[in-house]
Amino acid sequence: MTISFQINGQAKSMDIEDGNTPLLWVIRDMLNHKGTKFGCGKAACGACTLLIDGEAVRSCSYAVKFAAGKSITTIEGLGNKENPHPVQQAWIEEIVPQCGYCQPGFMMATAALLEKIPQPTDEDIDKNIINVCRCGTYYRMRKAIHKAAQIKAESIDPINS
């Protein structure tokens, strides 16, 4: 079947044999965007988190057929080195990553959180950021999430910055 969607602002039409193929593998192996990671295949760790129409989705357990007509954002589309997303900027300033493997999933989940709750409390973060990091970078991540909220607010409202 042909499935069309937007990914990182670009329209794509994909020829997919099995519409139940997890979106993760279409993105990693067919579109060659490797920033979205495979961790568990059961939506339990969040390493594969990306945005579909602005919502954080665990793409290892999301059939590609459901992506038809939707807009997908991966870590590659969140920002780039010249123009980082506030979440990426904050991650750099706080030197968050260790091994780095789970980090794109956390950054995508954080980007979605900040759209819903621009100034999240610690409780908001605890409730919404539920991915798994084995290196234990949560302590710096929390600081980075608060900082990202601040950077985002300043970029939207330069007068108050």
Partner: peptide
């Protein structure tokens, strides 16, 4: 740091 924040294919 940058490779890990911008999702470079390093793994």
């Amino acid at each position: 740091l940058e490779a890990k924040v911008f999702g470079d294919p390093i793994f």
